[in-house]
Design a protein around this nucleic acid. Structure first.
Ligand code: NAD
Ligand code: NAD
Lengths: 215, 215
DNA sequence: AATTTATCGATATATAATTATCGATTATAC
DNA sequence: GTATAATCGATAATTATATATCGATAAATT
């Protein structure tokens, strides 16, 4: 009776809340907390408790009335649901300011993402090392990706070169692309594209701010 | 009749799509394109044309049947609606990997955000320069923010220090906080908090990828 | 032991967001 | 000039998402 009610379309909004819970749960775990209720979780984020329960329901985890959910197993369920239980190896293309910051960020491993190599087409960067990662020429991307069975690609090149990076990745058999450039990209059927648009977040901020100043 | 139908709550999803249109519109503008229809815009992003029209409606811009919208004025309307028509000065706290990348990113200015100074509590960093920005001690934040009438703060410190940064900003009269740390933060009534959670985006990617591998 | 209270799971309702429909409008083709 | 096709604005229908309700359950309280 766990997954019989699971809808075939996972709400994107739920998918985005689950990492929030996970992060908090890991803190609770570290503090030795054994059980947590939806009410408690909800309070932390100013969500509705029922919303949290519905999100958790997606993962298949079942709780106990009056007690809530076991922190340790809930962490496992969320990770498994998100695909963070086993590490995904990834290649990064574009070792500029943002690319470097991502290479230097150790926590992605916790979230199942293991960056194994980085690529750039600037000959001055090729051969150098950044946070222990050797920078390869993009010409090596295809061979290495196939040899190492890489299915995840991260794009941190300028927008005008983002489509090139996509094409490179698609040719190399990459199945999922995490794109940080603001360019609209074309991908073939079957390849997953997830965009990080900082300006979207900025838009929400400034629009709200505008209304604060008005009133 | 322009804004009489405008709802008092702006859909967050719309707010996030507007920058996408804007980016494309600016490219069109640069290419000398004078008019654009919702159909064209929609095709670029694989959105429904009606969705695009509704989003544009929010900005108050009116179009002409068969022609569409004038690119130049539409850009203006979107920018104004997002609060990107006049620059907002901002302070950044936490000049680490991500903070540096943000300081080095010139395009935020296009989106109405003008970073004017950066702060860190690492004494080795204080006094140095990063991309032309002098790094100040966080102890100077309050004075400078008040003196320079700064209302926007950017947080790029480790999660365990993010609440400190919030408190610092709130005390200094900051009205809107753009937070890049994954920590859940407490803010007083009236202050705007916008979080950038890269792991949320990663969650969507890996969950989708998991299902690709399953089938 | 009985009562109270918190919380679960399931189901129902309400709200928000997206997509469809339709008459009006205007350039382009004939 | 008249017909055709594209697209607008407005309204309606649909779908997705969030919130409310309710009986069941299990700890805490009396
Ligand atoms: N830095 C930020 O804070 C920030 C914020 C929002 C969005 N972005 C986006 O992220 C992307 C990277 O930004 P950045 O600030 O790191 O830029 P950057 O200019 O610092 O770095 C770009 C890197 O990509 C490399 N590159 C260019 N074309 C390439 C290609 N075809 N193949 C491989 N490598 C290539 C360059 O050599 C450079 O090292 C951009 O699309 C930018 O719009 C950055
Ligand atoms: N780097 C990434 O790609 C990335 C990705 C996702 C999230 N983040 C988040 O962004 C934040 C910054 O990440 P990072 O990789 O740049 O970390 P970092 O460790 O490189 O930089 C943190 C900086 O903050 C400074 N700092 C610490 N405490 C401070 C305080 N109380 N006041 C002022 N400055 C203080 C440190 O001296 C350091 O310079 C973190 O919360 C991280 O979780 C980073």
């Amino acid at each position: 009776m766990t997954n019989s009610t699971t809808p075939h379309t996972v709400p994107r909004a739920s998918l985005k809340r689950l990492p929030l819970y996970l992060h908090l749960l890991e803190n609770l775990m570290a503090d030795g907390v054994e059980y947590v209720s939806c009410t408690q979780l909800a309070k932390e984020f100013d969500f509705d408790a029922i919303l949290v329960r519905k999100d958790i329901e997606l993962t298949g985890e079942v709780g106990t009335a009056r007690i809530g959910f076991k922190v340790a197993t809930l962490i496992g369920s969320i990770k498994s649901f998100l695909g963070w239980d086993k590490e995904q190896d990834a290649f990064l293309v574009g070792v500029g300011n943002l690319g470097k910051a991502i290479l230097g960020y150790k926590d992605f491993k916790k979230y199942g993402l293991n960056i194994v190599a980085a690529f750039d087409n600037d000959s001055r960067k090729v051969g150098t090392k950044v946070f222990g990662y050797e920078i390869f020429s993009t010409s090596k991307f295809g061979d290495l990706a196939k040899r190492m069975h890489i299915y995840v690609g991260i794009i941190t090149v300028p927008p005008e070169h983002a489509q090139e990076a996509v094409d490179l990745m698609v040719d190399a058999g990459i199945k999922a692309i995490w794109n940080f450039s603001p360019a609209p990209l074309r991908i073939p059927e079957g390849v997953i594209l997830e965009n990080v648009r900082l300006t979207q977040s900025l838009a929400v901020l400034t629009n709200k701010l505008k209304r604060v100043f008005k009133s």
